[in-house]
């Protein structure tokens, strides 16, 4: 009997379309009650050149929901864990707030929640995903930078984008197997 193929959630980002409008950041805050001062996602800005030959580019980033998440590995209590579909989560009730995972994340995707004193991170809006919706940042994005989907579903837009477009992951040398794919 064929085993039902498991889902593997991932995200494709077309950074060139990012206009640094912060909609994803605010949408995330609203959806996930993220306190002021900490963020589950961000937009990295890179600037270069001298007037008037200037360049500026934006790379949205959040938890890469890695294949081999180092945060999960170092967690002493097992509060950080990875679901079968690849989403890396924190069981807030088990988190003791040692912040080891924050340090262990090569993508600086985690933060210490100043209100709950536990560690917070992007969940890919798993609660929305589980009821068939898109993550808040994906849905709200004005320039549609983000495509969220199941890597194992050949029919998904995400799968097709990765099949047809050149792409890269951020710092593959971390060995974490990040699952945010940036189109080139």
């Amino acid at each position: 009997m064929a085993k039902k193929p498991t889902k593997r959630y991932a995200m494709v980002l077309d950074s060139r379309k990012c206009i640094d409008c912060k909609a994803c950041i605010v949408a995330c805050k609203a959806e996930n009650d993220v306190p002021l001062g900490v963020f589950r996602n961000r937009i990295n800005v890179e600037k270069a050149g001298d007037y008037p030959k200037l360049r500026m580019s934006f790379d949205p980033e959040q938890c890469h929901h890695c294949e081999n998440p180092s945060c999960v590995r170092v967690c002493p209590t097992g509060a950080s864990y990875q679901r079968e579909d690849g989403i890396v989560l924190v069981k807030y009730d088990d988190c003791i707030g040692c912040k080891y995972c924050i340090i262990a994340c090569p993508y600086d995707a985690r933060y210490h929640n100043p209100e709950t004193h536990t560690v917070g991170k992007c969940t890919f809006c798993s609660h929305r995903v589980d009821r068939g919706e898109l993550p808040a940042c994906v849905e709200t994005c004005p320039s549609k930078v983000r495509v969220f989907g199941d890597l194992n579903d050949p029919k998904s837009e995400l799968h097709q984008l990765l099949a047809s477009r050149r792409h890269q992951v951020m710092n593959p040398q971390t060995g974490n197997g990040p699952q945010l794919y940036y189109l080139l």
Binding site: V74, C75, P76, T77, D94, C95, I96, G97, K99
Partner: peptide, 22 residues
Amino acid sequence: DLGKPFRFWKLFITFRWQSPMS
């Protein structure tokens, strides 16, 4: 230094060999 000091006992109900802290 823990965010949740009163949960430190959770360290001792698990043993995670991959976690240096454990």
